[in-house]
Measured scan of single mutants.
Amino acid sequence: ALRETGVIEKLLTSYGFIQCSERQARLFFHCSQYNGNLQDLKVGDDVEFEVSSDRRTGKPIAVKLVKIK
Protein backbone atom coordinates (compact mmCIF):
# COMPACT_ATOMS: atom_id res chain seq x y z
CA ALA A 1 0.00 0.00 0.00
CA LEU A 2 1.08 3.56 -0.65
CA ARG A 3 2.47 5.37 2.38
CA GLU A 4 1.56 9.02 2.84
CA THR A 5 2.73 11.68 5.26
CA GLY A 6 0.94 14.29 7.28
CA VAL A 7 0.83 16.20 10.54
CA ILE A 8 -1.20 15.40 13.65
CA GLU A 9 -3.78 18.17 13.72
CA LYS A 10 -6.04 17.09 16.57
CA LEU A 11 -5.56 14.44 19.23
CA LEU A 12 -8.21 13.10 21.58
CA THR A 13 -8.26 10.15 23.96
CA SER A 14 -8.98 7.40 21.45
CA TYR A 15 -8.73 9.07 18.07
CA GLY A 16 -7.42 12.07 16.18
CA PHE A 17 -7.06 13.78 12.82
CA ILE A 18 -4.14 14.14 10.42
CA GLN A 19 -3.68 16.98 7.96
CA CYS A 20 -2.29 15.25 4.87
CA SER A 21 0.79 16.55 3.09
CA GLU A 22 -0.01 15.02 -0.30
CA ARG A 23 -3.70 15.85 -0.50
CA GLN A 24 -6.12 18.49 0.70
CA ALA A 25 -7.68 16.32 3.34
CA ARG A 26 -8.00 15.74 7.05
CA LEU A 27 -8.00 12.05 7.83
CA PHE A 28 -9.48 10.41 10.90
CA PHE A 29 -7.37 7.84 12.72
CA HIS A 30 -8.02 5.60 15.69
CA CYS A 31 -5.30 5.54 18.33
CA SER A 32 -5.08 1.73 18.11
CA GLN A 33 -3.54 2.29 14.65
CA TYR A 34 -0.48 4.01 16.14
CA ASN A 35 2.41 1.60 16.67
CA GLY A 36 4.16 3.50 19.46
CA ASN A 37 3.51 4.94 22.89
CA LEU A 38 0.55 7.30 22.66
CA GLN A 39 2.10 9.50 25.36
CA ASP A 40 4.78 10.37 22.79
CA LEU A 41 2.30 11.48 20.14
CA LYS A 42 1.32 15.14 20.08
CA VAL A 43 -0.25 17.76 17.84
CA GLY A 44 2.24 18.95 15.24
CA ASP A 45 4.08 15.63 14.98
CA ASP A 46 4.93 14.37 11.49
CA VAL A 47 3.55 10.92 10.81
CA GLU A 48 3.55 8.39 8.01
CA PHE A 49 0.52 6.21 7.38
CA GLU A 50 -1.50 4.17 4.92
CA VAL A 51 -4.89 5.24 3.67
CA SER A 52 -7.72 2.77 4.07
CA SER A 53 -11.47 3.22 4.04
CA ASP A 54 -13.88 3.07 6.93
CA ARG A 55 -15.91 -0.14 6.68
CA ARG A 56 -19.10 1.59 7.80
CA THR A 57 -18.95 4.92 5.97
CA GLY A 58 -16.55 4.24 3.10
CA LYS A 59 -14.67 7.42 3.98
CA PRO A 60 -10.86 7.43 3.80
CA ILE A 61 -9.09 6.94 7.13
CA ALA A 62 -5.44 6.73 8.17
CA VAL A 63 -4.10 3.38 9.39
CA LYS A 64 -0.73 1.95 10.47
CA LEU A 65 0.60 5.26 11.77
CA VAL A 66 4.32 5.69 12.39
CA LYS A 67 5.90 8.82 13.83
CA ILE A 68 8.63 10.28 11.60
CA LYS A 69 11.69 11.15 13.63
Rank of each mutant, 00 (worst) to 15 (best):
A1M: 04
A1S: 02
L2D: 04
L2R: 12
L2G: 08
R3P: 02
R3T: 04
R3L: 03
R3S: 03
R3V: 05
E4P: 02
E4Y: 05
T5I: 02
T5F: 05
G6D: 01
G6A: 02
G6S: 00
G6Y: 00
V7G: 02
V7L: 05
V7S: 10
I8S: 00
I8C: 03
E9R: 10
K10L: 06
K10E: 03
K10A: 11
L11G: 01
L11V: 06
L11Y: 04
L12A: 15
L12P: 02
L12H: 15
L12F: 10
S14I: 03
S14D: 09
S14W: 08
Y15G: 03
Y15L: 04
G16E: 00
G16S: 01
G16L: 01
G16P: 01
G16R: 01
I18L: 10
I18Q: 00
I18G: 00
I18M: 02
I18S: 00
I18V: 08
Q19E: 09
Q19C: 12
Q19H: 06
Q19A: 07
C20R: 15
C20I: 06
C20V: 11
C20A: 15
S21W: 06
S21G: 07
S21M: 06
S21A: 10
S21F: 04
E22A: 09
E22D: 15
E22R: 08
R23I: 09
R23H: 03
R23L: 04
R23G: 08
Q24S: 13
Q24Y: 04
A25W: 14
R26Y: 05
R26G: 11
R26P: 06
R26D: 04
L27N: 01
F28C: 06
F28M: 06
F29Y: 03
F29D: 00
F29C: 01
H30M: 12
H30C: 05
H30Y: 10
H30G: 06
H30S: 07
C31P: 14
C31L: 09
C31S: 12
S32D: 13
S32Y: 10
Q33S: 05
Q33G: 13
Y34I: 15
Y34F: 09
N35D: 03
N35I: 01
G36E: 13
N37V: 11
N37A: 10
N37G: 08
N37I: 15
L38H: 13
L38M: 15
L38N: 15
L38Q: 12
Q39H: 15
D40L: 08
D40Q: 10
L41T: 01
K42H: 15
K42L: 12
K42C: 08
K42F: 07
K42E: 07
K42T: 12
V43P: 11
V43K: 07
V43I: 12
V43Y: 12
G44Q: 06
G44D: 11
G44T: 03
G44I: 00
D45P: 00
D45Y: 01
D45H: 07
D45W: 01
D45V: 05
D46S: 11
D46I: 05
D46V: 05
D46H: 14
V47Y: 01
E48Y: 03
E48H: 10
F49Y: 15
F49L: 02
E50H: 05
E50S: 09
E50A: 11
E50F: 06
V51H: 11
V51F: 07
V51Q: 15
S52V: 13
S52L: 05
S53P: 12
S53M: 09
S53R: 09
S53E: 14
D54S: 13
R55E: 07
R55M: 07
R56Q: 10
R56E: 08
R56L: 14
R56A: 09
T57L: 10
T57H: 08
T57R: 13
T57D: 03
G58K: 06
G58D: 14
G58I: 13
K59F: 05
P60M: 15
P60I: 14
P60Y: 09
P60V: 13
P60K: 03
P60G: 05
P60S: 10
I61H: 12
I61C: 11
A62G: 12
A62I: 04
A62T: 02
A62Y: 00
A62E: 01
A62F: 01
A62D: 02
V63L: 14
V63D: 05
V63A: 12
V63P: 01
V63T: 15
K64P: 00
K64L: 05
K64V: 03
K64Y: 05
V66G: 08
V66K: 15
V66L: 10
V66P: 00
V66F: 08
V66Q: 07
V66T: 05
K67H: 02
I68T: 09
I68D: 03
I68N: 06
I68E: 02
I68S: 09
I68M: 03
I68W: 05
